[in-house]
């Protein structure tokens, strides 16, 4: 009986450790390294072009063989609406579109971590609760090619935690996000073309 109790305690302890190391530590390390990356920008370098500025530009830009920029803007707005964005700002002469959406930002890893910290240390840690996601799209004529249009998009987000503090203000720079966006805009351009 005694041994069983001790064993069950041991297993529980092991389970907590595993849970902790998997979701909490994993989540925390991920977000910590991400934050470090963002914080690499020194305050004074905020307007400095960096070595990765050009690769980011490539990732965020595509050229479409359409001369009518109005049509591209319409497609981009259609796509933003498809994805639940609200259009906050638009200027067709300058080809500028800003879309945003407010969504939940609760992540299982963080919550699990907060629960464990609460159990062990008896303190409550704020976790991410809400986020505002922005999509900034700029449509322009391709340089030295009036038959094509250039689309550049940048995604970013602000995250608030359960203490209503701004916990993150970051640019989203995962290549996959941009690949998905551009494959969608190709489809959206097709839809606009077809007047569906």
């Amino acid at each position: 009986m005694h041994i069983t109790r001790q064993a069950s305690k041991y297993i529980l302890f092991l389970a907590i450790i595993l849970f902790f190391s998997n979701s909490f530590a994993g989540g925390m390390i991920n977000s910590a390294s991400k934050n470090d990356k963002e914080d690499e920008i020194l305050a004074a370098d905020v307007l400095k072009l960096t070595s990765d500025s050009m690769s980011l530009r490539q990732m965020q830009t595509r050229k479409y063989e359409i001369s009518d920029q109005g049509k591209v803007i319409q497609s981009a707005v259609g796509l933003l609406q498809d994805d639940g964005f609200i259009v906050e700002e638009i200027n067709s002469d300058l080809g500028v579109i800003l879309g945003s959406k407010n969504r939940e930002a609760v992540e299982s890893g963080q919550v699990a971590g907060a629960i464990i910290v609460a159990i062990i240390f008896g303190v409550s840690v704020p976790v991410d609760k809400e986020q505002k996601m922005n999509a900034s799209i700029v449509v322009s004529q391709a340089p030295s090619d009036p038959t094509s249009s250039i689309v550049r998009v940048t995604f970013s987000r602000l995250v608030w935690n359960t203490a209503n503090e701004l916990s993150k203000a970051e640019r989203l720079e995962d290549p996959e996000i941009y690949q998905i966006f551009f494959s969608k805009i190709s489809k959206s351009l097709f839809l606009t073309e077809q007047q569906i």
Partner: peptide, 28 residues
């Protein structure tokens, strides 16, 4: 955009462009 800003407002009649750069505590 090259500098990592999100363009928040643009008006060509007045000639104004505004944006924000999200970089956590160094946002501008």
């Amino acid at each position: 955009q090259d500098l990592g800003f999100v363009i928040a407002k643009a008006d060509n009649d007045v000639g104004v462009v505004s944006g924000s750069k999200y970089a956590n505590r160094h946002s501008a």
